[in-house]
Design a protein around this nucleic acid. Structure first.
Length: 426
RNA sequence: GGAGAGGUGGCUGAGUGGUCGAAAGCGGCGGUCUUGAAAACCGUUGAGGGGAAACCCUCCCAGGGUUCGAAUCCCUGCCUCUCCGCCA
């Protein structure tokens, strides 16, 4: 959510900045609602003040043993009048709040302009793309030939966009999770957390998935109506919802492994082959809660932490800056890490690292106590994948494949695999 | 699932339908004392919003209700704790 004060003070300026990301701000509606709100709020508060002072004098008169009947007559009708105004005000405020919740974040000034994915500039690239003296296969062909990746059975068990993994490949998948968590906790200063995989609507509103993107989520149909998390970002960031953090405790750096569930509505026909786009996948997430002045540096650091995983796994990748047309709803700035996939001859997203500034914090009422002012102020939130586990598995399979279809285990993972160095046919 | 007890500021915890946005303690901040610190003492200290301002409004888990007036009374929901049952 944007700062309502900013919207009141500089609506045209905000509209211009949002236009960069292709969002048209409905200035007319906002202005007229805001005007009504102001008028009705002033009236309502005047009525409330009158009720309060009259009630107070009734109390005093009663205590003094005076006759309060005439005083009671004076306030007759005031209650109903007040109730009507209060209801009117509440309706307006709901409407305004609803509009506000649907407005995306303002991109930072130096986020590059662009319409979509194709306009994202490359910031840097790392590693050598492997050269094969044979035609490299993609992970589906490799996995099925190894007898360790099975999409058909997954489709029988559930439906499309699920997978079954067997044997050493399943172990590699698990090893990746341990490796990532250990690296972030032991080398990058994060605290590991275990969190619920089902969350309530308030949490999803806090991080910005609701109200706009409900169709991307899986929702339970029972009375509670919980949602399966689409990313650990939701439960982990919401750890600090409705709380005030002491300055000394900042920054808070959390890492968590969770499964993620996405309906992938609207991506029909896209990435239907293999493990790239699944309804269920594992991810290790990093979340930082920082002082506002630290958020820009924190995003750079966190992006580096995600890169460190790729580097230790010796996977070639590049970093792109998302342009204004591709940046997510809640983000003010985002870097995507894209890993090289020989099977597709393409770079594919494997991590997305964003600075949300106060956008999520305002929705969550996540604050810290600023020692300079003594007042609670909004935190900044940062998060990024470190990394998407399924896609990392894909990247290892495709980059470390051998002519005979076996997969070399990256050195960094061998100790998590009982010193296995090669994955071969079962 | 059954029975009971509770939800009050950053934390602990009082609170009779009427100067209660709320005692007290802890913590925080400022000061006195001290070479410095600790201790002691004194003072100060909830959040959000409206208004140009004076000032005003809202908030005691949430939502309804009763009342001139609700932290306090009534209803519903949520959450926490204790006991019993069941259970990985």
């Amino acid at each position: 959510m944007l700062d309502p004060k900013l919207l009141r003070g500089d609506l045209d300026g905000v509209a211009a900045k949002l236009a960069r990301r292709g969002y048209v701000l409905d200035i007319t509606t906002l202005e007229s609602l805001e005007e009504q709100r102001k008028a009705i709020q002033v009236e309502t508060q005047a009525l409330q003040a009158e009720r309060n002072s009259r009630s107070k004098s009734i109390g005093k008169a009663k205590a003094a043993g005076e006759d309060i009947a005439p005083l009671l007559q004076e306030v007759e009708g005031l209650g109903d009048q007040l109730k009507t105004k209060e209801a009117e005000l509440a309706k307006l405020q709901d409407e305004l709040h609803g509009l506000l919740m649907g407005i995306p974040n303002i991109p930072q000034d130096d986020v590059p302009d662009g319409k979509g994915e194709e306009d994202n500039p490359e910031i840097r690239a790392w590693g050598e793309r492997p050269v094969f003296d044979f035609a490299p296969k993609d992970h589906v062909d490799l996995g099925e030939a190894l007898g360790q990746l099975d999409f058909e059975t997954a489709a029988k068990l559930t439906g499309s966009r699920f997978s079954v993994i067997h044997g050493p490949l399943a172990r590699l998948h698990r090893a990746l999770i341990q490796f990532m968590l250990d690296t972030h906790t032991q080398q990058h200063g994060y605290r590991e957390v275990y969190v619920p995989y089902l969350v309530n609507a308030d949490s999803l509103r806090g991080t910005g998935q609701l109200p706009k993107f409900e169709e991307d989520l899986f929702r339970m149909t029972d009375e509670a109506g919980y949602y399966l998390i689409p990313t650990a970002e939701v439960p982990v960031t919401n750890l600090v919802r409705d709380s005030i953090i002491e300055a000394d405790d900042l920054p808070l750096c959390y890492t968590a492994h969770t499964p993620c569930f996405r309906s992938e509505a609207g991506s029909y026909g896209k990435d239907t082959r293999g493990m790239i786009r699944q309804h269920q996948f594992e991810k290790v997430e990093m979340v930082q809660l920082v002082r506002p002045e630290d958020s820009a540096a924190a995003l750079e650091a966190l992006t580096g932490h995600a890169e460190a995983i790729l580097q230790q796994l010796e996977l070639p990748y590049r970093v792109v800056a998302l342009c204004t047309g591709d940046i997510g709803f809640s983000a003010a700035r985002t870097y995507d890490l894209e890993v090289w996939l020989p099977g597709q001859q393409k770079y594919r997203e494997i991590s997305s690292c964003s600075n949300f500034e106060a956008f999520q914090a305002r929705r969550m009422q996540a604050r810290w106590r600023n020692p300079d002012t003594g007042k609670p102020e909004l935190l900044h939130t940062i998060n990024g994948s470190g990394l998407a586990v399924g896609r990392t598995l894909v990247a290892i399979m495709e980059n470390c494949q051998q002519a005979d279809g076996s997969i070399r285990v990256p050195v960094a993972l061998q100790r998590y695999m009982g010193d296995t160095t090669l994955i071969s046919k079962l």
